[in-house]
Every structure is written in C-alpha cells, then in structure tokens.
Design a protein around this nucleic acid. Structure first.
Lengths: 156, 156
DNA sequence: CCACGCCTTGGGACGTCACCCACAGCAATG
DNA sequence: CATTGCTGTGGGTGACGTCCCAAGGCGTGG
C-alpha cells in the first residue's frame, strides 16, 4: 500500500496555497515555481499535478504577469480524500482496479471483503482531514487519537 | 493507495495452500503450476512471489516428483499484514519511504501524522485477518463490521 | 510590444508486471 | 542403483506506468 508522490506533492502544494490565501478564492495566486521551491517539488511534475487538481475543481489557474494558483474552494471543504482521488483515481485500487470490481473465485472471495474493509478504514481518516487542518497543523481528534499511540510510530 | 499485484497473488496462493493443508506443515504440497492455474496467476511471476514468501518463513518448498509448496506455520498464525510485508516491504510507504522516515518542513509536517494515522488504521484491519480466516471465508467481527456498511461497497 | 507565467508536447530513467527458456536438485519407479 | 519425470531456480526480454526533465506555444497584464 503505497502513497504516490503525486498525492504527497499535491497536498503539500495545497497547504502552501491555504497558508497564503485567507479563505476561499480570496488569496492571491502563488506561482508554480514558488510552490516548487517552497516544498521542493520538481517543476514540470508539479505542473502535471496542478493540471489534475484544476480538472477536479480544487484549484484555479490565473494566467498572466502576476498569475499563479489558488484554491477554488474554502480550505476546510477540501479533504485529503478529495486530493488523492483527483491525482491518483480511486482511494484504494488492487493492481489498477477498484476493490469492488476485481473478481475472485469462490475460494478467495473473502479477499475482496478485506480490501473493502481497508478502504473503509482509510476513508475514516482521509475524509476527516481537510487542507485547512493540515495548514493549521491541528488534526481532528479522531485522527490524533491514532497518532497518539506511541506504537504507531514504530516501523511496521 | 494501491495494493500491488504481488500482495494479492500471494494471498490467493496462500489461501489455496491453507485449503489443501490440514493445519501447520501437515498439508501435502501444491505445485506452483497448479496454484497458478487455480488462481490465474502468471507462472514465473508466481515463482518470484513464492521465493519472497519462503525467505520470510511463511512457506516451505519441497522439491521432487510430488513436491510443491506448503505453509511453514499454522494458517491462523499468518496474517494479511505479514504477507504484505513479505512481498512489498513496509505496510504503507510514501513514494518509497516509510511514513516516519519522510521529512517535511515545519509548514507541512501535519502530513506525516496523516500517513501515520492511515497506517495505524490499516494495521487494525490487516493484522486481525489471518490466512485461515480467508480460507474459511469468515472474517473477524471487527472487520466484518466495516464491510457490513453498505456505503463501503460504493465506488470511492 | 514585452515580460511573465500557465499550458502542451516530447523524451528518458526506473520499477512493476508478465512471459519464455535453459539449468539444477530431488523423489519415485524400474 | 541409475533412469526418468517432476519440481524449484535463475537469467534475459518486452510492455506499461511512475517520476522527472527540457522546450516551445499561448494568454495576460504592464
């Protein structure tokens, strides 16, 4: 279960926009070059990511001399799950297919229920954390409870 | 967050072994060719997967005329998490690194806590489900509770 | 008109997934 | 005890997706 570089980069870029902007689309635009410099993201890869976020209606592009990127919605209304779906497709996929789309024979069909349970479990985290939470550094209590367990920080 | 083909294939192969064997290493071996035919797994790819499982001490290889593969431990003692770690490394990795190893700047460090929380959440599922559970088709109650939610089966 | 920044296209390095083929080791059979 | 047939083991090939870099076209504001 690997988190793609796209998803991580996308969230870091959005954190910068949320920190710059003062609410919804009110913030002044941040250039892709500056976003890349602040968060150490390869420039042309970042462009592809921002294009995905634009298609999903999460950010707006402003062309021209003092252009750049800004949030299309209020920061609390954009969740981590929204961002992952925008750049990577389904929240969890088993070699390319959504969990409910893969077909197992009768002997292995319990495996599908495991992947479904895993997705449900991930949704409980990713849909509760917004870009505003990330920018403020304060996560919802239900999520913090998971990281407070010191066992959670051991390598697994 | 994608589940690799290796992990899915590995679990399906182990389900077949558990269904064949009657407990620990007591079951008669199943050939790689038969495993591949039963679960529709590419033959040589399966061989590489079985080699990983052998190095991790999950299965034993028996050469010779009526040889094949069988579980090295009792089916209830092998969890889904064990199998994923054997073939894919860490349970969750963010572009190649374990969550606690990635370094963010002070503005984005909340992101690390999100990945840690996601891993904790996944562990609650993967470490509670054993190969024996999968082979019998009966998952632990805590996991079934997640799949009983009809919302869990909608495409996300 | 010109500087600036978004936008598109193309290509290269790397890992995953999948396939094919010859080699080495083991067990049952005669 | 040697042969035979089955196993696992390893190397080499190609398609596909991810990650990353380079160059030029287009629209916007000064």
């Amino acid at each position: 279960m690997r988190v793609s570089a796209k998803a991580d980069y996308a969230l870091r870029a959005l954190i910068e926009m949320a920190a710059r902007g003062d609410g919804a689309a009110g913030g002044r635009p941040v250039s892709a070059e500056e976003l890349g410099r602040l968060q150490d993201i390869p420039h042309n890869f970042l462009q592809a990511i921002l294009a995905d976020l634009r298609k999903a209606g999460i950010v707006l592009a402003q062309r021209g001399q003092s252009g750049g990127w800004r949030l299309a919605k209020a920061a609390p209304d954009v969740t981590v799950a929204d961002v992952i779906r925008a750049v990577d497709g389904p929240l969890v996929s088993v070699y390319g297919l959504r969990p409910e789309a893969v077909s197992y024979n009768e002997r292995a069909d319990a495996l599908q229920r495991v992947w479904i349970a895993a997705r449900h479990s991930l949704r409980d985290v990713f849909e509760q954390v917004s870009v505003a939470d990330l920018a403020s550094g304060h996560l919802p209590d239900a999520v913090s409870a998971l990281t407070d367990d010191e066992d959670a920080w051991l390598p697994h």
